[in-house]
């Protein structure tokens, strides 16, 4: 019961902050901007590519945030989730109530994740509305739950990592910077490894990237979406990594391992550490 109280509080707290409004604005800007841009693309060469894709452009908006934006939003929400409670001293209020530390942590996690899902749901609604409105009837929508589900699931990796860093550092700015650096660093290393493997023709090298958190977190929805007929070009264009290596199961395993290890460390830390008085 008290877990639900913390979930509600967390959503409310996040909504009250300007950060969330900024995230929603960024979301709307990216989604609307991308579709409007496509309506402006005219000419025989564009038409040759775009016209066959028009019935599948819902996927563009649904997958657009997947490569990077959703992870940054996840980091932005999760980095302050625990850290700001320490910074503002409000953690005392909760921990002096009849609620276990594990329950509080779970409530904060679920509340933050619910918010992330809500921001993404807004993107999906915008993608569907704009694709129907601007490009007519859309096809293969039966894949929508699966694609959306994998995007939500894959956002767990950096959400959890950032949540953990926030709990360990107890500073939202450090947590945001460290988690973002981890995301970008992992991405740069992955891209370099892929580039190098293609350069020297050693495809086996590409498999190193499978062990980095960015691969599973960013590739799962693309792997799943590549099974949708007629959308290969959209998937290929949005995917950061070349399609064709690594399976959906490997991506799921990667997300699960990173998320569960980070959650376990966060729980261990929170259950055993002191909560000192807020220092002014």
């Amino acid at each position: 019961m008290n877990v639900w109280n913390v979930v509600r509080y967390e959503v409310r707290r996040a909504v009250a902050r300007r950060k969330v409004i900024t995230l929603v604005l960024i979301t709307v800007f990216f989604e609307v901007g991308s579709y409007v841009l496509l309506t402006q693309a005219h000419g025989p060469r564009f038409d040759r590519v775009l016209v066959p894709l028009k019935p599948y452009l819902w996927l563009l908006g649904v997958l657009l945030p997947q490569s990077l934006l959703i992870h940054f939003i996840a980091i932005s929400i999760a980095s302050g989730s625990m850290a700001e409670e320490y910074e503002q001293g409000t953690v005392d209020f909760f921990l002096t109530k009849p609620i276990g530390r594990g329950e509080f942590l779970l409530g904060k996690f679920l509340g933050g994740f619910l918010l992330l899902v809500s921001v993404y749901a807004l993107m999906v609604v915008l993608a569907l509305s704009l694709s129907f409105l601007l490009f007519g009837t859309q096809r293969e929508l039966n894949y929508l739950p699966e694609v959306v589900g994998t995007v939500v699931f894959s956002s767990l990796t950096f959400f959890t990592i950032s949540f953990l860093v926030g709990e360990l550092s107890r500073r939202s700015s450090i947590s945001f910077l460290a988690s973002s650096s981890f995301l970008v660093g992992s991405l740069i290393v992955s891209i370099l490894v892929v580039f190098l493997s293609q350069l020297v023709g050693m495809t086996s090298l590409e498999y190193v990237t499978l062990y980095l958190p960015t691969w599973g977190a960013s590739q799962l929805p693309f792997i799943v979406s590549s099974a949708i007929p007629g959308v290969y070009l959209i998937v290929e264009a949005l995917s950061l990594f070349p399609l064709g290596f690594g399976s959906a199961m490997q991506a799921i395993a990667s997300i699960l391992v990173y998320s569960s290890v980070a959650s376990a460390i966060a729980l261990y830390s929170f259950a055993r550490r002191d909560v000192p008085k807020r220092v002014y």
Partner: peptide, 16 residues
Amino acid sequence: LKKVGYVQEIPNLPSF
């Protein structure tokens, strides 16, 4: 803790 009330030195309450 349901039967315990606590007032902090400088109350840090959810200001929003």
